[in-house]
Nucleic acid binder design. Structure first.
Length: 348
DNA sequence: AATGCGGGGAT
DNA sequence: ATCCCAGCATT
């Protein structure tokens, strides 16, 4: 099994930038970026990061806002913040080299069981089996495991299989091969079982259960939220604020918002917005409804332009305030929902 | 064990 | 509109 898989991998692996002249740093960077993220989505970000921060020293010495700015749009922003923290620890406490044992790796911020196993196996050929979404799917099908993959019990079974299967001579290649197979052949919806190198070992394939496996229970329903997004203008300047360092979109810049229950009584919302930020001013145009789906929130929002004569403003829970020209907005780490507001403004 | 944390693509 | 994908940290 291992031999067939490895041979397939060597013949079919995708040509990805972290695979040419590999180093632990490239692996580290790519693995953090690819957490909860497809290669297609993460690739341009990897290119930007390796260009701007080519080695551990340059990353360790970067400031958080620069890293968040480069990360903006990719989501799960704590990954960026933790990656920076980890880089600083590696640089100052581990002589600038990624730790070579599992426990020490796991202690780094943002490095969990998956990333530790991935980096240690790929960079140092250490025998740790990775368990990611691809591996879960491949193993569930190989052994026709029908139980809910959200359950701890099921994951423990999968981990046992993965550890047993791991090729101890080439753990890095084996791990990459399993994930590559899951990403390109043993896919969720239309798996290419005919061209799978290990279909002869696959119980789900034999029993015609491939499309029913793996089973995953439904996640909780998303909470619905509605925001009024205030584009507060003083002459040519626009007000942006930075969110607190924890919680949703931590540390990111945005236009000040007001949470509302529905779109009725817009005049009242408008007054509440002004009193919340201790503003006076004239209401301008209001945008069409926009939408952003987060992992646990379904957000609908509209932009509303507000012209004010003064720059005094109340911060509320925000930690920083700036007045900038429209053209300067691109220099700030602004999350995707409010990039949609910027696109709307650009259209005016 | 459950929840919080983004974004995008396919159907 | 509704499905799906993908790890880590905190509670």
């Amino acid at each position: 099994m291992q031999h067939r898989l490895l041979k397939w991998f060597h013949q079919n692996k995708r040509d990805l930038p972290w695979r040419t002249n590999p180093s632990w740093y490239k692996t580290f960077l790519s693995e953090i970026i690819l957490q909860q993220t497809t290669v297609a989505q993460g690739l341009p970000y990897y290119q930007k990061f390796i260009q701007q921060y080519p080695d551990i020293k340059s990353l360790a010495k970067a400031d958080e806002q620069s890293v968040l700015h480069l990360w903006a749009g990719l989501g799960y922003y704590s990954r960026a913040r933790n990656m920076l923290k980890a880089a600083r620890i590696i640089y100052t406490e581990h002589d600038g080299v990624f730790p070579q044992d599992y426990k020490t790796a796991l202690a780094l911020p943002g490095i969990g069981p998956y990333s530790a196993a991935a980096i240690l196996s790929i960079s140092y050929n250490l025998p740790h089996a990775v368990i990611d979404g691809n591996v879960i799917r491949v193993i569930c099908r190989l052994y026709a495991i029908k139980e809910d993959t959200r359950e701890k019990n099921t994951l423990n079974r999968i981990k046992k299989h993965a550890t047993k299967l791991l090729d101890k001579k080439a753990p890095g290649d084996f791990n990459e091969a399993m994930m590559e197979l899951g990403a390109t052949t043993c896919t969720p919806r239309q798996p290419l079982c005919q061209s799978c190198p290990i279909n002869r070992f696959c119980i789900a394939y034999k029993k015609n259960l491939v499309i029913k496996i793996p089973y995953k229970s439904k996640p909780a329903k998303k909470k619905k939220l509605i925001n009024l997004v205030g584009v507060i203008k003083n002459k040519s300047q626009i007000c942006i604020m930075r969110r607190p360092d924890s919680g949703l979109l931590a540390g990111m810049w945005e236009f000040p918002i007001l949470e509302i229950r529905d779109w009725d009584n817009l005049d009242i919302h408008y007054d509440r917005f002004k009193s919340r930020f201790e503003l006076t001013g004239q209401l301008g145009i209001i945008s069409e409804e926009m939408r952003q789906i987060y992992s646990h929130i379904d957000l609908r929002f509209k932009g509303i332009i507000l012209n004010t004569a003064k720059k005094s403003i109340h911060k509320n829970d925000y930690v920083d305030v700036k007045w900038v020209d429209f053209s300067e907005l691109k220099n700030y780490a602004i999350h995707n929902a409010h990039k949609k507001i910027i696109a709307w403004l650009a259209d005016q």
